[in-house]
Design a protein around this nucleic acid. Structure first.
Length: 337
DNA sequence: AATCCTCGCAACCGCCGGAAC
DNA sequence: GGTTCCGGCGGTTGCGAGGAT
């Protein structure tokens, strides 16, 4: 059948010859690609514009890095895939000189098998139970897909809003986004919550998933590298977030420490939430009280709404490469109240 | 040596969203 | 508002190389 752009003319398919490559390189180097649909004609190629684009992007671009993937690149792919799922183009953006096609092929040919051999579901990065592994060679996982609901958004029940100022003040000043293992410090992203006088040495705040009855406890005020405690009402070793961080090599690196920083002016509510509710529920943490000292020893339950995850936020956090980023610039972060 | 099988990878296909008309 | 064009993306296919039998 063929694509529309090449249905009008006779086009060659299959592998590109060195001569065709040469023509394409020469043309694009001299003129740029402009409209891809016109490239084949102008470059003297019997190819579809789409094919030219693909050939250039995947193989002829001078900035491409060829050769096998390094261990570090592999780890980055795994880390980002855990968050984004099969969004190869997004994953490839974290790997300079690599293409989405390359990453996809590498995943399918190598990483996928490696994860399976480690007992991990390559889709969810969760541990595959021994029962599942024993009863079928196929990977079975009914848990939320990371690319579908990859990262929950904090929500606070409406009934909590009366105490919102009090509760929010108990949040740790710094919370490292959970899915990234400590092996990739460059990808760690810290969320700053202004709380300059955070002093309680052993407070805990917990994130609770209502549907799955999981609770994650973050030791507030602890030093870098402390590990959250994940408890569950089920006996499964998996978790509601679709991350396999219970694997001994993939443990969260909760990053909680006091911050002297700019004050948070506003927290954006989720984009999909009803506009009225957004207005109603917006809170200004910057205006909140600062009576956290006597409250930090208590627990706070924060419900996860895994259906309202903001991928752009995760994307921005990964791309920034910064360790810390204060919340005033985290416009994509969504909070439901 | 011939055949079969597996694997990696380049390329294609179909879908989608945005822009232009 | 509907249609067409185009670029981008993810899934899939098909081919060639190399290893196993």
């Amino acid at each position: 059948m063929g694509h529309r752009c090449c249905s009008k003319q006779k086009v060659k398919r299959g592998l590109w010859s060195p001569e065709e490559d040469e023509k394409l390189i020469r043309y694009i180097t001299a003129h740029g690609h402009g409209s891809w649909s016109s490239v084949p004609k102008l470059a003297g190629l019997q190819r579809c514009g789409k094919s030219c684009r693909l050939r250039w992007i995947n193989y002829l671009r001078p900035e491409l890095k060829r050769g096998s993937f390094s261990a570090q690149e592999e780890q980055i792919i795994i880390d980002v895939h855990r968050i984004l799922g099969n969004r190869w183009a997004q994953i490839a953006k974290h790997l300079p000189g690599r293409t989405d096609n390359e990453v996809k092929n590498f995943w399918n040919s190598c990483i996928k098998k490696k994860l399976i051999s480690q007992g991990l579901d390559p889709k969810t990065h969760n541990l595959i139970s021994s029962h599942q592994r024993n009863t079928s060679n196929k990977v079975v996982c009914n848990l939320p897909q990371p690319h579908q609901q990859p990262f929950p958004v904090f929500t606070v029940n409406q009934q909590m809003t009366d105490d919102a100022s009090m509760e929010v003040n108990r949040l740790p000043p710094f919370v490292t986004l959970p899915p990234l293992p400590p092996t990739q410090p460059s990808l760690q992203q810290t969320m700053a919550i202004p709380n300059s006088e955070y002093q309680n040495p052993n407070p805990v705040w917990t994130a609770k998933d209502q549907s799955s009855q999981y609770t994650i406890s973050f030791p507030c005020g602890s030093s870098i590298g402390s590990t959250p405690i994940i408890s569950s009402s089920s006996s499964s070793s998996v978790n509601p977030f679709g991350f396999g961080f219970l694997d001994e090599n993939l443990i969260w690196n909760a990053h909680v420490e006091p911050l002297e920083g700019p004050r948070l002016e506003q927290v954006q509510t989720h984009q999909y939430q009803d506009q009225h509710d957004q207005q109603k529920n917006k809170i200004n943490i910057g205006e909140m009280g600062n009576d956290h000292e006597q409250k930090c020893g208590q627990d706070i339950d924060v419900s996860f709404d895994s259906s309202s995850f903001d991928l752009e936020f995760v994307e921005s956090t990964l791309l920034s490469g910064a360790i810390c980023r204060d919340l005033t610039s985290m416009d994509d972060l969504a909070w439901n109240f």
